[in-house]
Amino acid sequence: MRQASRPCGSLQRPLPRPRTPPAVELDSGAERDFAERIEDPEILWDCDGLLASSLAQQPPAAPSIDLQWIEDRFWVWVHYGATKLGRGELFETIGFLAYLRDTVLGPLAARRVGADPRGIRHLRGLGRTWRRRAAGAAPPV
């Protein structure tokens, strides 16, 4: 990996701000490792063109939400969280709510506004999008 990064210059200096993701990610995976992906990577070096041809064969696809999988487990999860709360295990309850947000509520909210259901970092922005759409819609009767 170090030999592959030498043409890029020194990558050992820290970025000026803490918690900033790395500016360059070097990946030396096989072409088959890129078959299933959610977005196309930027290819910096592909000497024989195998990676580019592998990426062209299968387009990226967003992960789908299995609604039945969520339905089968949702009330079990809620019961689990309620028992934690009933026993006074507040930090366990907070952890459970974070899991529920990551696994169910975030992806469902993203699906509702037509966004990719991956991650919850942009959930607040999705809420604004949903409110704008709902404001233009007629109120329920």
Rank of each mutant, 00 (worst) to 15 (best):
R2P: 03
R2A: 12
A4Q: 08
A4W: 05
A4Y: 04
R6C: 06
P7Y: 14
C8W: 09
C8P: 00
G9A: 11
G9D: 06
R13Y: 05
R13S: 04
P14K: 03
T20L: 09
T20D: 05
P21W: 03
A23S: 06
E25F: 05
S28W: 04
G29V: 02
G29R: 01
A30E: 07
A30F: 00
A30T: 02
D33Q: 05
F34H: 12
A35W: 08
E36C: 12
E39P: 08
P41C: 05
C47A: 06
D48M: 01
L51H: 04
L51M: 02
L51S: 04
L55A: 05
Q57T: 08
Q57L: 15
Q58K: 08
A61N: 05
P63A: 12
P63T: 14
S64P: 07
I65S: 11
I65G: 12
Q68C: 14
W69P: 10
I70H: 15
E71H: 14
D72G: 15
D72V: 09
R73S: 12
R73A: 15
R73L: 14
W77C: 04
W77L: 00
W77H: 03
W77Y: 05
H79C: 09
Y80V: 02
Y80W: 07
G81A: 10
T83E: 11
L85T: 02
G86D: 10
R87L: 14
F91I: 15
T93K: 10
I94A: 15
F96Q: 11
F96L: 15
Y99V: 08
Y99T: 15
R101M: 06
V104L: 12
A109H: 11
A110K: 08
R111E: 12
R111C: 11
R111Q: 11
G114Q: 06
P117M: 03
G119K: 09
H122A: 03
G125M: 04
G127K: 01
G127M: 09
T129H: 05
W130N: 02
W130P: 02
R132C: 03
R132G: 00
